[in-house]
């Protein structure tokens, strides 16, 4: 790692104040930032340790939802009884990610801001517009098996690697932020951005912004939901494709639906039209396939990842079928 200075923030305001200086980065669990610093992909001059700020609680909200502290660990979030019973798809998504050790370290806020696992992004000997704007994209025309099939640009085809975020997208979570210009709430769908011609920018956060919490609305689709992750090995691997699915059922008819895909785009992929295609319809594989096709209608494969299009369609049908059948809120 390159040399840097280290300081511990003693309050959220202190953290935001310190982050004003350029070249400053917050460190929470450290599991993504330190990895990238070792690979020399990022090289902050100042680290501000926010891991001990009292933003690690999980609390009920007045609206009947749940507030997840930005510094609550992924493991503590996944095993929280309220999360397990009211938002089982979220618990399942978190436990499908990384390893037990990493989940003990990783924070909720840090998980939202983890960078892509694109090989070229990590390899400083190769061009990458995300790491080095204007240098080109190694993955386009290179090895792109893990890359995007939706929402990509001719500058970057990276995917966002998080599992947690796919469930948060389906649940319509809200990200609470405090920054140099005060506090604001960002709906999850607006939090991450598509690469466009600025692939170096992953989210709508501005310099100095600190995530304080993630709010879950009351509706958790606890009775009929699941998280399905397809990957190259059974555990401890990033998703090739993942699906967060939540249904509200009225007998055999779908009353409400949420559907988000991971591993396919620069952000969790959701489309209200795909969900509309399910609502009021019978919960059958044909209907599910139809909705999958709507969600994937603009999908475009590259040399090595075209398999993801059919994989995603099948994964959606399987996840929705599981969600429709599921009763109660089983422990993940």
């Amino acid at each position: 790692m390159r040399s840097f200075t280290y300081a511990r923030a003693d309050s959220a305001a202190d953290a935001v104040g310190r982050a004003g200086a350029s070249g400053t980065a917050f460190v929470a669990g450290g599991t993504n930032l330190l990895d990238l610093m070792k690979a020399d992909v990022v090289h902050p001059e100042r680290l501000v340790d926010i891991s001990r700020l009292p933003l690690d609680r999980i609390e009920d909200t007045a609206e009947g939802g749940l507030r997840l502290g930005a510094l609550a660990r992924n493991a503590d979030t996944a095993y929280d009884e309220r999360v397990q019973t009211r938002y089982p798809m979220l618990s399942k998504a978190i436990l499908a990610g990384a390893s037990a050790q990493l989940r003990n370290m990783a924070t909720n806020g840090g998980n939202l801001l983890q960078r892509t696992r694109c090989y070229y992004f990590y390899d400083t000997a190769t061009p990458c517009n995300k790491r080095e704007p204007g240098s080109g994209c190694g993955a386009i025309g290179g090895v792109n098996r893990i890359h995007a099939i939706l929402g990509a640009s001719d500058q970057c085809i990276a995917v966002h690697p998080s599992d947690l975020c796919v469930a948060l997208a389906a649940l319509e979570a809200v990200v609470q932020v405090t920054g140099p210009e005060g506090e604001r709430s960002i709906p999850f769908a607006e939090f991450h951005r598509l690469p466009g011609d600025r692939p170096e920018i992953d989210t709508v956060l501005r310099p100095g912004d600190l995530i304080t919490a993630i709010d879950l609305p009351a509706k958790g689709f606890a009775e009929h939901s699941t998280y399905l992750k397809i990957r190259d090995r059974a555990s401890y691997a990033f998703a090739l494709v993942s699906v967060a699915a939540g249904l509200e059922m009225d007998g055999g008819t779908v009353r409400d639906a949420r559907l988000a895909l991971g591993g396919v785009a620069h952000k969790p992929w959701r489309d209200p039209e795909a969900e509309a295609a399910l609502i009021g319809k019978p919960a059958t594989p044909d209907q599910f396939r139809g909705a999958a096709r709507v969600l994937l209608r603009d999908a475009k494969g590259h040399e090595h990842n075209s398999f993801k299009i059919e994989l995603a369609e099948r994964a959606i049908v399987r996840a929705l079928t599981e969600a429709a059948e599921r009763k109660g809120a089983p422990r993940p």
Partner: peptide, 11 residues
């Protein structure tokens, strides 16, 4: 349990 390679001693 944690991975000691991805945390700073100072943390």
């Amino acid at each position: 349990r944690i991975n000691s390679c991805l945390t700073l001693a100072a943390m």
